[in-house]
Amino acid sequence: MARPGPTMVLPRAASPLTTSPTSATPATSQAPPPGDDNEPAFYDIEQEPKVFYYYVHLTVRVPVSKPYLLMSDVSPVEGSTMWMSCNLENGTGPIQYVWQYETRSSNISAFAQGNTNIINVTNINRNHTGWYRCVASNAVNSESSNRLWLDTIFGPDIPQIDWSK
């Protein structure tokens, strides 16, 4: 009768798996000592059995979800201060944010970037009126928010009379 090839019994996880919405990693990166509720892998060989312990460090990188943009005031008064926030449901850090502005004539420019999801805009003026969006990126992917219109309230301007002419 032919003897089957080597067989293996796989061990259970060497340590509990800790998960969060943005990552999953083993609770410890050190291998637990034999007998601490970990099972070895046994190979069926013709000599004495050999015991092998396998420990895996698992890193799960979660792609960024589609960001959504929030503004503290979508119709700020000229001269005021407001903030914008680029929010995500999921994504493994580090996450980079790029803030984009689109004028009425469809010119798009990046006006800020960094690793923070909130920016403050001080001394709002009529030139800030336009479409805004944020782009969130990590090692896995990059996603853009939908545009949000900022409508600055201004005027009427104080008339100026020049008596010198």
Rank of each mutant, 00 (worst) to 15 (best):
T81F: 15
M82G: 08
M82P: 10
C86R: 02
L88W: 00
L88F: 01
E89M: 08
E89P: 00
N90I: 01
N90T: 07
G91D: 00
G93E: 05
P94N: 11
I95H: 00
I95W: 08
W99E: 06
W99S: 04
W99Q: 02
Y101P: 00
T103Q: 15
S105F: 15
N107Q: 04
N107Y: 08
I108K: 15
I108N: 06
A110W: 10
F111E: 07
A112I: 04
A112C: 04
A112G: 04
Q113F: 00
Q113V: 00
N115W: 09
T116F: 15
T116D: 12
N117L: 10
N120D: 06
N123I: 02
R126L: 08
T129C: 15
T129P: 01
R133F: 10
A136G: 01
A136V: 05
S137Q: 11
N138S: 09
N138I: 11
A139L: 13
V140H: 08
N141E: 04
N141W: 09
S142G: 03
S144Y: 02
S145E: 07
N146R: 09
R147A: 14
L148K: 07
L148T: 08
W149R: 06
L150H: 03
D151E: 05
I153D: 04
I153W: 14
F154G: 13
F154W: 07
D157Y: 06
P159N: 04
